[in-house]
Design a protein around this nucleic acid. Sequence first.
DNA 1: CAATTATTTTAGTTACAACTAAAATGTCAT
DNA 2: ATGACATTTTAGTTGTAACTAAAATAATTG
Lengths: 121, 121
Amino acid sequence: MQLAPVTLTAIASPRRREILRLVWRQELAAGDIHRAMPDVTFGAVSLQLKTLVDAGLVEVRTESRHRYYRARRDALGPAAKILEQMWDDALWRLKLAAELEQSRRGPQPTQPKTSPRRKRS
Amino acid sequence: MQLAPVTLTAIASPRRREILRLVWRQELAAGDIHRAMPDVTFGAVSLQLKTLVDAGLVEVRTESRHRYYRARRDALGPAAKILEQMWDDALWRLKLAAELEQSRRGPQPTQPKTSPRRKRS
DNA sequence: CAATTATTTTAGTTACAACTAAAATGTCAT
DNA sequence: ATGACATTTTAGTTGTAACTAAAATAATTG
């Protein structure tokens, strides 16, 4: 399989990666996708979906009034791994942050926030 | 190893991919790199080099008047494979094109290029 | 048919990446 | 120091990606 340059530009956009993540393992209607990202208009989401479809990275199925989108994971080839890894890493970091937050509330913070010096002079 | 989003935007640019290819397996001075892409100014190349260095994808070594650049293949992680594959594919296509060209000069073309007409008028 | 829902498309705005030309910086030789 | 070379940095231009608001399309329901 050949990885087109358009694939690289497609996954370089955070917004499109967000969409890809949503439809990675399940079909979602355009409206569902928009509901998951309320900071942009429906039109914006629709345009990005079109970009992804044109790049061959997402497939669409029309059913009655709805249009269901789903990632074509195979078409992404080696890029699929990169995305999954990025998402895993992000989860990992979130988890770490949450644990840190937790411990900050608890009895003894394991690490002072800044200036690790014990004492000077 | 964590693959930063900046890596994706870095390799999404054809110009930066061109540079990465040049310094993939050898050090090159900024001037050498510029000489290999005469369609842009030296300044433009220098800016892209800076972008690549800032993204951590290229390292630089200063020696006397020159600055030598080289790809950090390990820092690219899974993206390295993608790039190499793209370049291999491009070579592959070039090779096919060359063979086609060759056979066009030879006795029997295996495939007419377009419009199989023998002669006009 | 009209009204409702789901989505796309158009036209226009804005932010930014990639570039150029020119000035600035740094390094070596004389 | 002066000049030549190698490169970076600055300031300004331009093309385009990402967006918004609104109009257009399309399917469904009463």
